[in-house]
Design a binder for these strands. Structure first.
Lengths: 344, 344
DNA sequence: TTGAAAGCGCTAACAC
DNA sequence: GTGTTAGCGCTTTCAA
C-alpha cells in the first residue's frame, strides 16, 4: 500500500546502469546513448518510479515552487488573480504554495517566514493591502526580498529584489469620474471599502477628476463602507441611510463591483431608473458586473495581463535577467448599462 | 544578498555543541539540559537560522504539505472551499500546494503525479467533477490513493485510502423542490450546468420530489446550460429563448446560484413579480444570493462544515487513526425573497 | 545529557 | 557515453 520507495538505485540496478546514467536520462541530458536511454526508461516505466523531490531539492536547493500570499483567496478579485497566476506559473513548471494571511501584519510575517523556510523560489503578494503606510511596517517585505524575489501585484514598493506590477488605478478612476461628469452626472458619490495603497490611488484619481472638471463635492460624498467585503445588502443599507439623512446623489462611482451592485440595489429601492436618473460605475469588471441587472459598467484593470507580466518578470528574475522594477498597465472602462454616453 | 546558507553545522559550532544536540532542541526533544538548550537557542537567534525543509523532508519523507486540486480556483464555490481548506490545514501546520486542473482527465492525472512526486502527504479533490462515470476513468484516484490518502469534497468513490465528505445534494434538492411545489408553484423548471456526480444527485432529488408530489413536468423543463460557468447573461438568454419557444414555467430551481441569478433576470425582463408570480431557488448560498435583488433563497450546503470535517478526517488518517470513509451532511434552505411560504 | 556517524535520494564534477 | 563519488542539511540510532 505505501509507496515502494523506489529510488534511483533500484532503477539503476533494474536497467543495469549506474545511478548517474539514470539521473542523466531523468534530466534529459544528451550524453546518453539511445540504447541505454531506452533501457532506463523501460525500467522506470516498469517500476512506476517517481523521483524524490526532496532529494532533488536538497541538491539543487530549489523545488520550483512559488509562494502566493493573499489576504483571502475566496475574494472574487483575489481568487481570479490566484487562478491566473497559478496557470502561468504552472506553464513555467512552477508549483504554488498558497497562504491566506488575512489582513494582520503579524500573520503575514509568519507566513513569509514559513514560505522561506520551505525554500520557495519566489513570493507573490497578491493585492495592494500588503503595502502599509510606514517603512517600518513594510520592512517585512524588504527583509523577505533579501532571500527571494518578491513580486507585488497591485502594490508598489521600492526595494532591492522587489518588483511591482500594477494597474494605474489613479488614471482609471480619473477617467471614470471624468466620464461620469461628462455624461451629465452632477452629484457623484464615491463609495469605497479599502484604504490600501491602490484604494488611495483610486480616491486621488477621483478627486483630481472632480477638481479638473471644476466640480466640488462635499466630504460626505466620499463614503467608506466598513463592513464585510461581501455584504452587499449592508452596503446598500448604508446608501439608503445616507439618503434618509438627506444626502443626495445621482451617480455612484465604486471602488469595487460589490459596492457598485449595492448602488444598483439602492437605485432600485428608490425607484430610480438606471442610467437615465442614476449612474453607476464599478471596479474590477468581475462577474458581478454581468450578474447585475442592468449590467454594470465597470473598470477593467486587466488582471490577466497583470498576472502574465508578473509571472514573466518573475521568470526573468529567476533566470538572472535584469527586469523592470515597476510595470504599470492602464485600465479600461467596460461600458455596459449603468452609464450614459457623453452628453453632446 | 543571497541567504547565508546557515546550516545546523554553523549553529552547532556557534553554540559549541554537536549537530545532534541542535537537532534535538529544534525538534523540542526533552533530553537536553536547559543550559545547553539556551546556548543553542541563542546561537539560532543570533544567526537568524532557519532549518532547510528539503533536508528535513528527505529524512522524514514528509514536508507537511497537502495537495489541493480544483478545476478552477476562481469559481465562486471552489474558491470558498479552497479558502476554508487552506485555513483548516494551516491550523494543523500543513501547507497547501494548489493545482488548477481544468476539467480534462489527462491534466488531472499529471497534476496528481506531480503532487505525488513532490511528496505531498495527502491530496484533496475539490468538487464532484473529479468523479467520472466509469471505474476506468476513476482509476487515477484509486491509483493515487495507493500512495497518499485522497479526500473527496463532494464526490463519493469507494476505494482503499479514499475518503468522501459530501453534502446530501439529493436530499437538499428534494426538499427544495417539495417546498416549491407546496408553495404553489406548479410548473417548475430545473436549470443546471453540470452533470458531475453531485449534479446527477441533485437532478435525482428533483425528479423524486416531483414524483412523490404527483406532479409531472415535460423533459424540456430540465434545462442544461452548456456555456461558461460565469455567463449569467447567457444563462438568462437561454431562458428567454425557451419562453419565446412557448415553454412556460412559474418557478426555477437552479443547480447553482449563477443560474438562479439568471432566472431572476429572466423574470425581470418579462415583468414577472418575484415571488408572487415567479419563484427561484438557488444552490450554494453564495454571495450571489445576497447580491441578487430580490435576494435569492438558496440551498446552503454547509461548505465550511464540510471543509472542517474533511480536514479533521485527513488529520486522523495521517495520524494513523481509523476514520469514516464516507461522511454526509445535510444541506439547508436559506429562505430569502425569491420564494413564498407554504400555501395553507 | 551529549556526540559520532550512518543514512535519506539525488545531482554534478571528475575520471575513465 | 558511462561510472564513481562527494556532497546537499537534517534526523536518528547507538555509544559514551
Amino acid at each position: 500500500m505505501k509507496d515502494h520507495a523506489t529510488t534511483i538505485y533500484d532503477i539503476s540496478e533494474l536497467a543495469g546502469v549506474s545511478i548517474a546514467t539514470v539521473s542523466r536520462v531523468l534530466n534529459g541530458s544528451p550524453n546518453v546513448s539511445d540504447a541505454t536511454r531506452k533501457k532506463v526508461l523501460d525500467a522506470i516505466e516498469a517500476s512506476g518510479y517517481t523521483p524524490n523531490a526532496f532529494a532533488r531539492g536538497l541538491g539543487l536547493n530549489t523545488m520550483k515552487t512559488i509562494g502566493i500570499l493573499a489576504a483571502d483567496s475566496s475574494d472574487l478579485y483575489l481568487a481570479k488573480a490566484i487562478y491566473h497566476l497559478e496557470r502561468e506559473l504552472r506553464a513555467n513548471d512552477y508549483d504554488c504554495l498558497l497562504c491566506c494571511t488575512g489582513y494582520e501584519l503579524e500573520n503575514r510575517k509568519s507566513a513569509i517566514d514559513l514560505l522561506i523556510s520551505k525554500k520557495v523560489d519566489g513570493i507573490i503578494l497578491v493585492g495592494s493591502n500588503f503595502i502599509y503606510d510606514t517603512d517600518e511596517e513594510n520592512a517585512y517585505i524588504v527583509e523577505a526580498a533579501r532571500t527571494v524575489p518578491v513580486m507585488l501585484l497591485n502594490g508598489a514598493l521600492e526595494a532591492p529584489n522587489v518588483y511591482s506590477i500594477t494597474s494605474d488605478d489613479y488614471k482609471s478612476m480619473y477617467e471614470a469620474a471624468s466620464e461620469l461628469i461628462d455624461s451629465g452626472v452632477t452629484n457623484i458619490l464615491y463609495y469605497y471599502n479599502s484604504i490600501s495603497y491602490s484604494g488611495k490611488r483610486k480616491e486621488k484619481g477621483f478627486r483630481s477628476a472632480l477638481k479638473d472638471r471644476g466640480v466640488t463635492v462635499p466630504e460626505n460624498h466620499l463614503q467608506y463602507f466598513d463592513g464585510t467585503r461581501e455584504d452587499v445588502p449592508g452596503m446598500a443599507a448604508q446608501l439608503l441611510a445616507l439618503h434618509k439623512k438627506g444626502v443626495t446623489f445621482d451617480g455612484v462611482i465604486a471602488a469595487d463591483d460589490t459596492l457598485a451592485m449595492s448602488a444598483v440595489k439602492y437605485a432600485r429601492t428608490l425607484g430610480l431608473s438606471i442610467p437615465e436618473e442614476f449612474s453607476v460605475i464599478g471596479y474590477n469588471n468581475s462577474m458581478l458586473s454581468t450578474c447585475s441587472d442592468p449590467e454594470l459598467s465597470s473598470i477593467d484593470n486587466k488582471l490577466e495581463t497583470l498576472c502574465q507580466h508578473l509571472t514573466a518578470t518573475l521568470m526573468g528574475v529567476l533566470g538572472g535577467a535584469d527586469m523592470p522594477k515597476i510595470t504599470v498597465f492602464s485600465g479600461e472602462i467596460a461600458h455596459r448599462k449603468t452609464t450614459r454616453p457623453k452628453t453632446t
